[in-house]
Design a protein around this nucleic acid. Structure first.
Length: 883
RNA sequence: GGGCGUGUAGCUCAGUGGGAGAGCACUUCCUUGACAUGGAAGGGGUCGUAGGUUCAAUCCCUGCCACGCCCACCA
């Protein structure tokens, strides 16, 4: 027997363990089934589950379970990412607590510590994924720093280097002065900041004139090597070619003409600091201006600046320089100014453009085939508009700085000879051999200390996890993968780079479809973040409402093209849905509705049974199509309404008289149908709500039927039944009308009343007769008298008018006739309003002439129906003496 | 500056070229043998705004307003 209430917490771990142990999650590369593959975006190995994970993994799991049930050989490839900077930061924080640093430890020891940390905490996220019900092929779990994946990284690096697509370059990078590493453009976020625009007057050499420049970063003046004005700017034309002397520094720098200077911005003259500004770097190159690096790795002023400023932090330096300028009378004016300041997304400190040697990847070259692949539709984005975003970025892509000055990650396979020559090889021995060949003798090689950007290895994920560069059966079978499910926030970081690397090394796109889902926000639409304190913890939700409730909620809210604002009331509502389903199953069990293998729903005879089967078939089509089209919310909606609205509210209530009645054949058919529909429903719901459905299936079908996770997805023909639908729709509307009339006339719900049919067509009469038991029960009628029976007095009865029939309910006591009249008049008015609308249309010759014939026909039908109802309603009003 | 998206019931959001929907909230009633995590009835919206296309627009097109996000080197 099913328990009185569904307690998810008690059963989930047990069911999950059964699934996992049964091998139901496993891919079968040797099978003859059609393959289907999803690459799990690897979460950070030291991370823990947040709502974004919950959403993305729920959707992936839905697709996985759905396709598995449809008979595909599904590989959902799991794994985790080493997350270089993030993980290193976590471990460094731990060290800090132990009053030590990575530098105290040394590189080897530190890396050992990180591995140790990975061992300790790396299981957290995968454990949490399990509690979410995710069903990837766990034994195939990979880590981006596994031997195999590391070998793939080296292979790719070396090959791209040999082709000149990876190279070393000295240029400005985004330097993180806290983390002491370069970061890529993507890891820098601009934050709008209230600052100032300071106008500084630089005296022109050999003249009384001075030239004023505007700057948001006065401290960089110590590194100025020029002043630029626009070549057409009349105000400054006479100064081009002359020199100014930098205040406080007393260095002589030229005034150059360059179109970069915008005459309308600031003073029209701009200071040029080539070593500390990306634009200035370019201007400097054009005019051969020297680069003066004034910062050290901490962004403190170095020895290239006057002694008074050396060692100062950049912000302290700004203050002092402004004060000194003021004192020297060189600060012309100060304006408030809003500017975008670059911050490191990990460190949260201001990023400094800094001149260093780094490794770069020629992304523009790699992007070409990836762009072309999306253009020709080899990869399709869903929703389609994300392709614009992809194209926009890929067509303007900048060189990708791939080296990081941290320790945790894939160390770059480059070795330096004493003379600075670089040998890039997959192993040190190969590098040694190459060096020996070059120098004709052994030389000591030193390995590049840097590691690769984490996203470099992630970019290889779709093929490195499948065994590349080895030609494995998995690689042949599952690449290209079917769909990548991810959020738009990592299109650039990850999707674009996988496209580049996949096209380059596999010669084929990594996935046929990229489904981009929304971001999960809090109920006010704010991005969830620790600092805002608005995080909804999925694990807490699971504990409180159950995994299925969370999964269903996320699914129901996963409409394309919109963010998800997660309100707890929504989760509660869908938890109730799980309870509803549970209780329906309990009801079925109590009424001995058992699955019958012999039962053929297409052969059902009772209208109500034919109707529910047809409704189910319709819902099944909707759900299937919705999942195929990634319209997850539609799938959830169709299921919710079928289960609650059709099956529970109507079918189960409607068939109660049959189950308690005397007609054995009808009872048997209804029991079998109830069990069958329930069985189908748990199939359809399983991808979204795996736990409750698996539990119910076991109860319904028994242990030997096999687990639901391995069952076949429903598919049927021949169940559509327009006649049954018409009949049931009519009975439902009759019941609704009677209920409304009773409620509005304040008839106590418990009162049983006799009904008299005053008017009915032959069809309607037959329907009333056929469903008499249901009518008596569902709207509390004691008796239904035929058309010619003696009707009660008008002051004792209320009237019900539906399409094709009128009834009179005998209250056996005086009613408020005025109220009854008003009620009927209100109904009449509604019908008249509708008739007016229809008349306006049909009265329009253009409509009749130009609209589709079906549309005209439909209006005519509606008009006829409305007129008939109106006539009966008027008759009813006349009966009680209304005008 | 460029790109994308959003504006529909009190709130959160679906939706469709031809009769405005859901969940939650609200009002009234109901502890009837699955379910009060429930059932029944009900109130509530000129579908942001101004035009255009169309026989017909909440839906398609254009402008505008508001909000959000992404990208971008303007001092």
């Amino acid at each position: 027997m099913l328990e009185k209430t569904f307690t998810p917490g008690a059963i989930e771990p047990e069911i999950y363990a059964q699934w996992e142990a049964s091998g139901a999650f496993a891919a079968h590369p040797e099978s003859g089934k059609r393959p289907y593959c999803i690459m799990m975006p690897p979460p950070n190995v030291t991370g823990s589950l947040h709502m974004g994970h919950a959403l993305t993994f729920t959707l992936q799991d839905i697709l996985t379970r759905f396709e598995r049930m449809r008979g595909r050989d599904v590989l959902w490839q799991p794994g985790t990412d080493h997350a270089g900077i993030a993980t290193q930061m976590v471990v460094e924080r731990n060290l800090e607590a132990a009053k030590t640093t990575r530098h105290d430890l040394g590189r080897a020891k530190f890396i050992e510590r990180v591995w140790q940390w990975k061992t300790e905490s790396g299981g957290t996220i995968t454990r949490q994924l399990r509690s979410l019900g995710a069903s990837p092929d766990w034994p195939r779990e990979r880590f981006t720093m596994d031997d195999g994946l590391s070998a793939a990284v080296r292979r790719v690096f070396v090959q791209l280097h040999k082709e000149g697509l990876i190279y070393r370059d000295k240029r400005l990078v985004n330097w993180d002065p806290k983390l002491h590493t370069a970061v890529s453009d993507l890891e820098v976020e601009g934050r709008e900041t209230k600052g100032s625009l300071w106008y500084i007057a630089y005296p022109v050499e050999g003249s009384d004139e001075s030239i004023t420049v505007a700057t948001t970063r006065p401290e960089t003046m110590l590194g100025d090597t020029g002043i630029a004005v626009h070549p057409d700017d009349e105000r400054y034309r006479h100064l081009v070619g002359r020199h100014v002397v930098i205040p406080l520094v007393n260095r002589r720098i030229p005034i150059v003409a360059d179109a970069y200077a915008d005459p309308t911005a600031g003073s029209g003259a701009v200071k040029i600091t080539p070593a500390h500004d990306f634009n200035d770097f370019e201007v400097g190159k054009r005019h051969n201006l020297p680069l003066i690096n004034i910062f050290d790795a901490d962004a403190r002023l170095n020895d290239a600046v006057p002694e008074a400023y050396r060692g100062l932090d950049r912000f302290a330096a700004r203050k002092k320089i402004l004060a000194d300028l003021e004192a020297a009378g060189r600060l012309a004016k100060t304006e408030p100014h809003i500017l975008m300041v670059p911050y490191g997304d990990r460190s949260g400190v201001v990023i400094e453009p800094w001149l260093t040697d780094q490794w770069y990847c020629n992304a523009a070259e790699l992007a070409k085939p990836a762009i072309e692949a999306v253009e020709r539709g080899a990869t399709v984005f869903v929703p389609r508009n994300w392709e614009n975003t992809f194209f926009e970025w890929m067509r303007n892509i900048q060189p990708w700085c791939i080296s990081r000055q941290i320790w945790w990650g894939h160390q770059i396979p480059a070795w330096y000879a004493p003379d600075g020559r670089i040998f890039v090889e997959e192993t040190e021995t190969a590098a040694q051999a190459a060096a020996r060949a070059h120098y004709k003798k052994d030389v000591a090689l030193e390995r590049d200390a840097d590691v690769l950007d984490t996203w470099f290895s992630s970019a290889l994920w779709p093929f490195s996890t499948l065994g590349w560069p080895t030609e494995t059966i998995e690689l042949k079978r599952y690449y290209p993968t079917d769909v990548l499910v991810t959020g738009f926030d990592i299109i650039f970081f990850w999707v674009a780079r996988m496209m580049m690397m996949g096209c380059k090394f596999m010669g084929e796109v990594p996935f046929k479809t990229v489904y981009i889902h929304a971001l999960v926000r809090d109920e006010r639409g704010q991005k969830m973040s620790k600092s805002k304190g608005n995080i909804v913890d999925p694990l807490r939700v699971i504990e409180k409402y159950g995994t299925d409730a969370l999964r269903f909620t996320l699914t129901a809210l996963a409409a394309q093209g919109r963010d998800i604002k997660l309100a707890e009331s929504r989760i509660e509502g869908y938890r109730n849905f799980a309870t509803k389903l549970w209780n329906a199953a309990r009801y079925a069990e109590m009424n001995e509705c058992r699955l019958d293998a012999e039962f053929d729903p297409a052969k059902a005879e009772l209208t109500v049974n034919r109707w529910i089967a047809a409704s189910l078939a319709h819902a099944t089509l909707r759900v299937t199509a919705a999942i195929e089209e990634f319209k997850f919310n539609d799938a959830a909606d169709a299921l919710y309404h079928f289960v609650w609205g059709n099956f529970c509210d109507w079918y189960l209530e409607f068939t109660k008289p049959i189950l308690t009645g005397a007609d054995a054949a009808a009872k048997a058919e209804t029991r079998a149908m109830t069990a069958w529909v329930l069985g189908q429903v748990v199939h359809l719901l399983h991808p979204i709500m795996p736990y409750v459905t698996e539990t119910l299936w076991t109860h319904l079908a028994g242990e030997k039927a096999g687990m639901l996770i391995t069952a076949r997805w429903p598919h049927y023909g021949g169940l559509a039944d327009a006649e049954a639908a018409a009949e049931m729709d009519w009975v439902v509307s009759l019941i609704a009308q009677i209920r409304t009339a009773r409620a509005e006339m304040n008839v106590p719900p418990g009162n049983e009343i006799a009904a008299f049919i005053t008017e009915a067509g032959a069809t309607e009469l037959a329907w009333i007769e056929r469903h008499g038991d249901q009518l008596r029960r569902l709207v509390r009628l004691s008796m239904i008298h035929p058309v010619d029976a003696k009707a009660p007095a008008k002051q004792n009865s209320i009237q019900v008018v539906v399409e094709g029939a009128s009834l009179l309910l005998d209250l056996a006591g005086a009613i408020d006739l005025g109220k009854e009249r008003a009620r009927l008049k209100k109904e009449e008015q509604a019908i008249r309003d509708e008739l007016d609308k229809i008349a306006a249309k049909l009265g329009n010759p253009n409509f009749v002439a130009r609209a589709k014939p079906e549309a005209v026909e439909e209006q005519r039908n509606r008009e006829a129906e409305a007129r008939a109802s109106l006539a009966r309603l008027d008759a009813a009003i006349a009966r009680i003496g209304g005008a």
